[in-house]
Design a protein around this nucleic acid. Structure first.
Lengths: 255, 255
DNA sequence: TTACTATTGTAACAATTTATTACAATAATA
DNA sequence: TATTATTGTAATAAATTGTTACAATAGTAA
């Protein structure tokens, strides 16, 4: 079904502005067959990790944002395009983390019936009914900068807390889990986490992010000392206003 | 050319035992189109990291071992098959490390002329002439257990020291470089290195391996203490015989 | 047998990093 | 102005890592 919606999405765009693209036919032959991209888009809000999920037409069918690769498009470009279309962002931190290629990861039968229910008669060997290998990317985005963008097929595009994810189609739950694993192992090596923070943030925000991703408590003084020793934070003179206590500094990421 | 040899290899196997498989035609339609696997097979010998490379028919055309994915075959299984066919091993440590998907990473023109020179007339849209996305796996194998196996197309299948690699076709040099990078970052986290050692080895052998992979000198006492503290080595009572000095212990990997 | 050599195994200590405790500073509230 | 909760960081303890040193020993050659 997911695949189908990608396909429908394609068809509708195609109808919208035929001139814009030069697809050779309406059956989607401008795309590479058998290959797809699925994106796990991470954001951080209310001290919680969230992912952007698509919801299918007032139903309870949820899926990861995804898409196909144009025949003349680089893989990386396709991934950026997919994430860009759902978030409205242009400067996106993307990491290719795993390829999901089990032969029977998606059952074509339900897709076929949905296609037919929608008045489309796919041939026996239609590419959308064949096996798909999916390349998993995760994106780290500034939650506050994102405008979740549904399309005509997916009328829902919303953030879901990691502990609050609805049942997902196909193997998308596996994909989310694997993305989180990869994010965790990348956290120490690369300075990846900052892509999830807004422009300005407190040390406490940052620690909450690390604690959420690593799923364990960290000691405040040790965390602060460690992060500051990296010399990647600039302390902004301004201070935050809040409760009945000392005001924390605001930081921003440099370089 | 690489792709072509994969293809030729397929055709010849097909001729050998048509009954064994149920491919629908001789043009390779049993394989997923547009997708390939390339394997960087690492071994360690003479205190040097080596990779297994294929050589094309008495020419100077070198390539990584690779292959396609059967339409009903899991990705992982295909990768195991590819490595198994070239090494003779069955129990293989494999890591999927990156997908190479630039639109123009392989120029089809030379392939076409080679195909024609070999008496094959590919149609304009033959799948082998289309774009290929390649999934990179690296394998870590016990050098002493490997029997490099050429096939009828690649008459050469040999080990090459990492500092002694001949020019490779397409983007295979990039693939090797990226594989090494991934191996390096995996070295600390996973206990990956032991897959490159033979059954029994000295601490010195192991240190040489780490030094080669990380490309830097390590201090002997610190290395020994660190490794032993992991409690993954069993000291075998036997000792090695060699030069005019104290004999080192032999170790083997446990669990 | 007995020095001599080169390398091994590990102790000992130093330097550094990480973990933990403690406490003064302070923004809001009453 | 005292109270409260939280922040920033100093001080110390514990653990890890880096470095030096040296006894042990398998071979070689007198």
């Amino acid at each position: 079904m997911f695949i189908f919606t990608k396909y429908l999405s394609y068809r509708i765009k195609h109808m919208d502005n035929r001139k814009e693209k030069n697809e050779s036919d309406a059956a989607g032959s401008d795309y590479m067959h058998g290959l797809a991209i699925d994106a796990v888009i991470f954001g951080f809000h209310d001290h919680q990790l969230k992912v952007l999920l698509m919801q299918y037409k007032r139903s309870n069918i949820y899926a990861l944002p995804g898409g196909f690769i144009h025949k003349e498009e680089n893989l990386e470009d396709a991934a950026h395009r997919v994430v860009s279309e759902r978030t409205g962002l242009t400067d996106i931190y993307l990491e290719q983390f795993h390829v999901f290629g089990d032969a029977h990861r998606a059952d074509p039968a339900p897709l076929r019936s949905i296609m037919m229910a929608n008045g489309f008669e796919p041939g026996e060997n239609h590419w959308l009914l064949q096996r798909f290998v999916s390349i998993g990317y995760y994106a780290l985005v500034d939650f506050t900068k994102v405008t979740p963008m549904p399309d005509r097929i997916f009328d829902g595009c919303n953030w879901y807390g990691l502990n609050d994810i609805p049942p997902l189609m196909q193997d998308h739950e596996t994909i989310v889990k694997k993305a989180l694993e990869s994010l965790r192992t990348n956290l120490d090596n690369k300075l990846v986490a900052f892509n999830l923070m807004p422009e300005e943030f407190t040390m406490n925000d940052l620690q909450a992010l690390y604690e959420t991703i690593l799923d364990k408590k960290l000691l405040r003084p040790a965390f602060q000392r460690k992060i500051l020793s990296l010399n990647i934070l600039q302390r902004i003179a301004k201070k935050w206003t809040g409760g009945a206590h000392k005001a924390p500094y605001l930081y921003k990421f440099i370089r």
